[in-house]
């Protein structure tokens, strides 16, 4: 017993000596303001920050056995940290021209993008992706990681498998898809065209809809909560086993409401429509 304790004690000190040594990274590359930049990190974390300088600067650390690459011209450049698992651990900050077109991927790495305004395509397999900025187009996806976006892009596509999706802001045209992740939309909402699809993930939509806009929510088993502004002007169509729409509770009776319930909100003169279908979930609609 004493021997085991001694061995355990010894082990607690040994790892710090055997942790892979780190390499410091401090690299710079010129890039045009609208240039394209692609960056891949296999694990760890990467934070991409937009700045008003026509160059890319990568700083931070990577583990000793991983390889770092950065190259390209003024119109397009790419960089990567590659290696296996923990051996490819990176903790990097990448500054890029604010309006650059970005393609960022993290294998298992967490990805964070702040303050960029150019088109953004980023994702991670199992890491979390966070986006905060003024990008006009955003495409982001993960498998297991969460996706948290605070922006108001004209065009947006967000996808996960099990990770939750949280979008705060407004978008002219947004689509969100997840299998079991929870979806939350707050802020302006989808003004012209919105589509949310889940299999079992719950959906909460706190937002508006523009004149003539369409919002469609399809989920197999998720619950759907709509929190619509009092001024909403749209046709609401709900197909669900159980619904509670502005206090009007309904349990589906196909003889009375074949094909679902239709409510005209605010006169429904704007041409906007909100369609919600859930096979096993319930639907609620309220106003704050």
């Amino acid at each position: 017993m004493r021997l085991r304790s001694l061995l355990m004690l010894a082990c607690t000190f040994v790892p710090s000596a055997t942790l892979p040594a780190q390499q410091k990274i401090d690299r710079r590359l010129p890039l045009d303001p609208n240039g394209m930049f692609k960056f891949f990190v296999s694990s760890g974390s990467v934070r991409v920050v937009g700045w008003d300088v026509d160059s890319i600067v990568v700083t931070g650390t990577i583990s000793a056995k991983s390889q770092f690459f950065l190259g390209g011209g003024r119109q397009g450049a790419k960089g990567a940290v590659e290696g296996d698992g923990m051996e490819a651990m990176a903790d990097l900050t990448v500054k890029v021209p604010r309006r650059a077109r970005l393609w960022i991927r993290g294998g298992e790495a967490d990805v964070r993008v702040d303050g960029t305004s150019g088109p953004l395509d980023c994702g991670s397999a199992s890491g979390t992706v966070r986006i905060n900025g003024t990008a006009t187009e955003i495409t982001a996806e993960t498998m297991g990681g969460d996706l948290v976006v605070q922006a108001s892009p004209d065009y947006m596509r967000l996808k996960t498998a099990t990770g939750r999706i949280e979008f705060t802001g407004g978008s002219e045209d947004g689509a969100i898809a997840t299998v079991s992740g929870r979806v939350t939309v707050r802020g302006g909402g989808f003004l012209r065209r919105g589509r949310i699809e889940t299999v079992t993930g719950d959906v909460r939509y706190e937002g508006a809809i523009g004149a003539g806009g369409t919002l469609a929510v399809d989920t197999h088993a998720g619950h759907v909560d709509l929190v619509l502004p009092r001024s909403v002007n749209a046709t609401l169509m709900v197909t669900a086993a159980v619904s509670d729409l502005f206090g009007l509770r309904s349990i589906a009776d196909p003889a009375k409401a074949p094909g679902g319930i239709v409510q005209e909100l605010g006169g429904a003169t704007s041409g906007a429509s909100i369609t919600v279908r859930t096979f096993k979930g319930r639907v609620t609609a309220t106003s704050p």
Binding site: A125, M143, G144, A161, T162, G163, V199, F279
Partner: peptide, 24 residues
């Protein structure tokens, strides 16, 4: 050659999807 956490997420999602397909 995929990370275990990614495999878990994908396989769990496929099971969820297949259940939903069966029910629908």
């Amino acid at each position: 050659r995929l990370s275990p956490s990614t495999v878990r997420a994908v396989e769990e999602s496929l099971r969820t999807i297949d259940r939903a397909i069966g029910e629908a």
